[in-house]
């Protein structure tokens, strides 16, 4: 049983599900609010931003790359979008289109640089993080933006309902978008040719070249996809907090990376699934939420998250190390 589990392709997801189930049971017993619909919707809303970006990060990691600059991309997209809708008006769809377009454009810059400069993606994207963000702040002088058109303040909800005791619940746009992004990314990775080529590229780049895959096009796709999701997430975030602050997103890039890695994506490429990433993000979200509900001071949250990351990556590495490098010879008896 244990051996089969260890070689099971979805072992990581299974393992994470166990942990999350155990944690849910514990939190459900320890607090009254944990399993309430209100709490669930709350958590979903506040993690919609991180969740959307983690889907993009997953795709980048699978292809064997990494992107650190997406927070800067999100910030630039958010600013551009805000300035346009404030000065020229528009609607929510336009807001997403603008932010998405900016994201795709900046993502393509990453893609081209990484492909042609042949420098590790981490270096290029750290550089572009500084370039995008530095330019933005230099141009905008780091001003906050509050004065959105009134339509922007009304977060559309797909449906809302009132329970017997009179509380109103709403499934708002950010939650819908989060689910939509998860579903479409899962579809992309599992059912489309591009998605499978990304796994192939991350698993063995040389072989992908020999298969005749267009590496430049795949890379561009990956970084543009990340950019697009960063743009979408940035509008979601602006909707939720109702302001645009230049320093609210940059600095969270490693947080997203951590959630995706917790979800089983490999930093060396080729491995990782969307369900895994959903579980990774859920684990982080549940820890924060659970600790809050249990009245643990928010100062402690990061300690827990840090400890979970350290333990999780250590256990993974240790079990892989124990399994690898074994020589086996059939001995004649």
């Amino acid at each position: 049983m244990w051996r089969r589990l260890r070689t099971h392709p979805q072992r990581n997801e299974i393992f994470l599900s166990f942990i999350i189930a155990a944690l849910s049971v514990y939190l459900g017993l320890a607090t009254r609010e944990f399993f309430s619909l209100e709490n669930l919707l709350d958590v979903l809303l506040s993690y919609s931003f991180l969740g959307i970006m983690s889907a993009g990060m997953l795709v980048v990691l699978i292809s064997g790359g990494i992107d650190i600059s997406f927070t800067a991309i999100a910030t630039v997209a958010q600013y551009t979008m805000s300035l346009i809708i404030i000065n020229y008006g528009g609607n929510l769809l336009l807001a997403f289109l603008i932010a998405g377009a900016v994201g795709i454009f900046l993502g393509s810059v990453n893609g081209f640089l990484i492909h042609y400069l042949k420098v590790p993606a981490i270096i290029i994207t750290i550089a572009t993080l500084n370039v995008f963000y530095g330019l933005l702040i230099a141009v905008t002088k780091g001003r906050w933006i509050y004065a959105f058109p009134t339509w922007f303040y009304r977060v559309p909800s797909l449906f809302s309902f009132t329970t017997a005791d009179g509380t109103e619940y709403a499934v708002t746009l950010p939650i819908v978008l989060l689910v939509a992004v998860f579903v479409s990314t899962a579809f992309l990775l599992r059912r489309t040719a591009v998605g499978r080529m990304l796994y192939a590229l991350g698993g063995n780049q040389e072989a992908a070249v020999r298969m005749g895959y267009n590496i430049l096009r795949l890379r561009l796709f990956v970084y543009c996809f990340m950019g697009l999701l960063a743009g979408v997430a940035s509008v979601v975030q602006a909707e939720i907090v109702q302001t645009v602050a230049p320093n609210s997103i940059v600095g969270r890039e490693l947080e997203v990376l951590a959630a995706v890695v917790l979800g089983g994506a490999s930093i060396t490429g080729g491995t990782g699934t969307l369900p895994g990433t959903v579980l990774g993000v859920s684990l982080v979200a549940m820890m924060h939420n659970g600790l809050t509900l249990m009245g643990v001071s928010s100062y402690w949250h990061q300690v827990f998250v840090g400890a979970v990351i350290v333990i999780s990556v250590s256990v993974t590495a240790w079990s892989q190390r124990a399994g690898r490098g074994r020589h086996r010879v059939e001995i004649e008896v």
Binding site: I122, L254, Y299, V303, G306, A307, S314, T316, A317
Partner: peptide, 27 residues
């Protein structure tokens, strides 16, 4: 220890300790 003896890739190991150490500092 985490990198050399547990064999964790440095980027992940130090990402974890970064979060942990920062957290402890905040506490």
């Amino acid at each position: 220890f985490i990198v050399a003896y547990l064999g964790v890739s440095p980027i992940l190991a130090t990402l974890g300790t970064m979060t942990l150490i920062d957290g402890i500092a905040v506490v």
